[in-house]
Design a protein around this nucleic acid. Structure first.
Length: 462
DNA sequence: TGAAATGTTGGGGCG
DNA sequence: ACGCCCCAACATTTC
């Protein structure tokens, strides 16, 4: 029997996994995950303790799932090239199969490995390969809607393939790394079974009201699948196939679009890797962002004095996840109200989001800051008071995550600084004590932001 | 996947 | 009956 390596990276699943199936075709399979020191110690991931814990939990579950097939997971630490070279030497394997990834780091890593080792890449991270979703002129899209049309024109997502029934292990001995003790996140238990359970329950109910309810954070109207898609605990093809099977409901179509947004930003990073360095729009690369560490810290900790902003920022710290409406609101606040470099926000999200993914995170931030592909116009500035009133009309969400405001009457909840002193005393919220005063006045900052963006455009001179 | 300012329209109260 | 004004509702423009 020949031996083949299944190199797991961000596809922690047994179902609908082309790389795994390809490895199976070769006889014995050696499932390997490399704890990449380059990633774990690198700038983007050094602080991502929660996401790392979620990954470790996922690896532990995958190991259990593999054992049910007569196999197991080998977690090895080091530099991927050296680790894999050693694995091939010890096992005598003749091929390594993995799912293709599109971040600049991953592509560089895989190209270097493929020069030396028999690495074969397979689809799985997206439904359609970014190199396949192109305009008639063979150009990549930079606007979502045409990308979406072209993506759909490529046909139905296809039928997910089954998990292997049995995975024979080669009779070799590898020195595997013990995984750190599980931390466990009660809001997001890791693993493929949990991912499928979430997807099924979302598609059995909330999806039908998704177009309306996805914007209301106090309602469980979203799928909360993002951390699972991030680590491939469910495949995007499975999600797209299942939601397509529901038919033409508006909720289903809206959710499918969200799956395609994910592929849009993976395509952007694939075709324009430079977005990792700065604004896609060259005219907005010279914005003079403010240097205000205290304001950045207030934003990070959820102490800006704007309840809807603070509630979402605290949701991120408390759970490792943030509702999508919240991501737009807090990102607009950081870049447009505080006029702080959106890359600080990008970094903070990467440090704290379970679903933190370079492509989607970078794309979302560039969109919100108005500097990216198909971005919100730079003069579109969210009013946190109006956004809060619109999407958290009963204050349920704010009161959940900003408990010091629990007693504040609804009419003041979005703007507690308007509370007369008597009211403050009555509900026990003294402004500047229990809850901060607003660190900026929204109405005042708009011209400042417009000037800064205009100045950048003028400096570009076109 | 804004918000605010400005413009337009049409119903109804009223002299 | 008619013109006038007010104003809400909606549309358009601007940032």
């Amino acid at each position: 029997m020949t031996t083949t390596v299944w190199w797991i990276r961000r596809d922690l699943r047994l179902r609908d996994n082309p790389a795994l199936l390809a490895a199976c075709a070769g006889g014995c399979v050696l499932p390997v995950f490399v704890l990449d020191r380059g990633i774990l110690d690198g700038r983007l991931h050094r602080h991502a303790t929660r996401r790392r814990a979620f990954l470790f939990d996922g690896l532990r579950v995958l190991d259990t799932d593999l054992q049910a097939l007569g196999s197991r997971l080998f977690v090895l630490a080091g530099r991927p090239l050296e680790v894999l070279r050693e694995v091939l030497a010890v096992s005598g394997a003749r091929a390594i199969h993995a799912a293709e990834d599109f971040s600049p780091y991953a592509r560089q890593r895989d190209a270097a490995i493929a020069r030396e080792l028999p690495l074969q890449l397979h689809p799985g991270l997206t439904v359609h390969h970014p190199g396949q979703v192109l305009s008639k002129q063979n150009a990549p899209y930079t606007i979502f809607t045409p990308f979406y049309r072209a993506w759909r024109a490529l046909g139905s997502p296809g039928i997910p393939c089954p998990a292997p029934k049995w995975l024979p292990l080669p009779a070799i001995c590898l020195r595997a790394e013990p995984l750190p003790v599980a931390l466990g996140n009660p809001d997001f238990p890791a693993g493929e079974a949990e991912a499928l359970r979430r997807m099924d329950s979302f598609l059995a109910g909330p999806v039908s009201a998704y177009a309306l309810q996805r914007d209301v954070p106090a309602v469980a109207g979203t799928s909360t699948l993002s951390p699972y898609l991030r680590f491939g605990m469910v495949s995007p093809r499975t999600a797209a196939h299942q939601v397509t099977a529901l038919g033409e409901g508006s909720g289903a179509e809206t959710w499918l679009k969200e799956l395609v947004w994910r592929e849009f930003y993976l395509s952007v990073i694939y075709h324009f890797p430079r977005v990792m360095q700065g604004a896609f729009n060259p005219r907005l690369r010279a914005v003079r962002w403010r240097d205000a560490p205290a304001d950045l810290a207030a934003w990070q900790q959820g102490r800006t004095g704007y309840p809807i902003v603070d509630a979402f920022m605290r949701q991120l710290l408390a759970t490792g996840w943030m509702h999508n409406r919240g991501r737009m609101i807090v990102a607009s606040f950081l870049s447009k109200d505080l006029l702080l470099d959106w890359r600080h926000g990008e970094q903070w999200f990467m440090d704290h989001l379970l679903d933190g993914d370079p492509a989607a995170n970078n794309g979302g931030w560039q969109w919100a800051a108005g500097v990216g592909t198909d971005a919100a116009p730079y003069f579109r500035i969210f009013n946190p008071v109006l956004q809060g009133g619109k999407f958290d009309p009963h204050g349920t969400f704010i009161r959940q995550y900003v408990p010091e405001l629990v007693e504040v009457p609804l009419r003041y909840l979005q703007q507690p600084w308007t509370m007369p002193p008597l009211e403050q005393a009555l509900c026990g919220v003294e402004l500047g004590q229990a809850y901060p005063r607003p660190i900026v006045e929204h109405a005042m900052v708009k011209p400042r932001t417009l000037e800064a963006y205009k100045a950048s455009q003028a400096a570009y001179g076109d």
